[in-house]
């Protein structure tokens, strides 16, 4: 461990609106994520988990507090292409083939490579080598046959896979995912979770993953961060000490369910605390 966390959030406050109608989307939120960790954010709607994600991705500015991605601000991290975003919808460009969709983010902002090398040098990491072979990456995600097709010709699950490949194609230091599987059916979701874990395990990327599925959180994450609403805050970070790969039998075992129960209990408690 080099000492510089992949993501560091310090006493962040985020307010929407002003005056008496102002709502605290986040208040006094702190979070530290070491490089290479898979962190799931879970909580009821309105707890600010997506807001926290957007703050880390530099898409919004906090009212108060400080956010660092590998020691630099989110804006600098974006300028150096340290961050890969997978939004809730695939967000593909319908007029471009799958292959061009996944390569376009690499073609824009060409000066990012130099910035990225500099930031990596500051924190003593290796910047990634030349861009990956996107055809190969698509093939590994089971999309080799559809590389020339348009997004409109694919199923929902395939489109979301394309979005994940697009993010991994950047070789991001931090992968930021906002409920990427929530619109998919259960079978598709499970196979995409497997593929995501495969890609993650051979990259060395850090993942911040927002979800509202307890099972998904336990299956994917090293750490599950439980959040509560009103104001949005972090209740607890739960380390999931289960062996990987987490598939097949393990999902039916008692220790897996024990983690699910623990997280559900924490969510419920936070909920009652709010109601009281």
């Amino acid at each position: 461990m080099t000492g510089t966390p992949a993501v560091e959030v310090r006493s962040v406050r985020m307010v929407y609106g002003s005056g008496p109608s102002a709502t605290f989307a986040l208040d006094d939120v702190g979070l530290t994520v070491e490089p290479g960790r898979f962190v799931a954010l879970i909580g009821p709607s309105g707890c600010g988990k997506s807001t926290l994600l957007r703050l880390v991705a530099g898409l919004e500015q906090p009212e108060r507090g400080d956010i660092r991605v590998h020691g630099v601000t989110p804006a600098e991290a974006c300028a150096a292409k340290l961050i890969g975003l997978v939004p809730q919808s695939p967000a593909l460009l319908p007029w471009m083939s799958v292959l061009r969709n996944v390569t376009l983010p690499q073609k824009v902002n060409r000066r990012a490579a130099a910035r990225r090398a500099r930031i990596a040098g500051l924190t003593g990491r290796q910047p990634p080598a030349a861009g990956p072979d996107m055809r190969e990456l698509l093939r590994r995600a089971g999309l080799g046959d559809v590389a020339r097709k348009l997004p409109g010709q694919l199923s929902g699950g395939m489109r979301q896979r394309v979005a994940i490949v697009r993010a991994f194609g950047l070789r991001p230091d931090v992968l930021v995912m906002d409920e990427p599987f929530s619109a998919l059916d259960e079978f598709t979701r499970e196979s995409l979770q497997d593929q995501l874990l495969d890609l993650w395990e051979e990259s060395e990327t850090t993942v911040l993953f927002v979800t509202h599925s307890v099972t998904e959180a336990v299956r994917l994450a090293d750490t599950v961060v439980v959040m509560a609403s009103g104001p949005g805050r972090i209740v607890e970070g739960i380390e999931v000490d289960l062996p990987r790969p987490r598939r097949g039998q393990l999902l039916g075992e008692r220790r897996f369910h024990a983690y699910e129960d623990l997280i559900r209990d924490r969510l419920r408690r936070a909920w009652h605390h709010d109601a009281a």
Binding site: G58, L59, L85, A91, L93, P105, N109, A112
Partner: peptide, 13 residues
Amino acid sequence: PREVLQVYRTVDA
């Protein structure tokens, strides 16, 4: 769409 813009803003296009 907003999410498309967000993807490309995180790579600072």
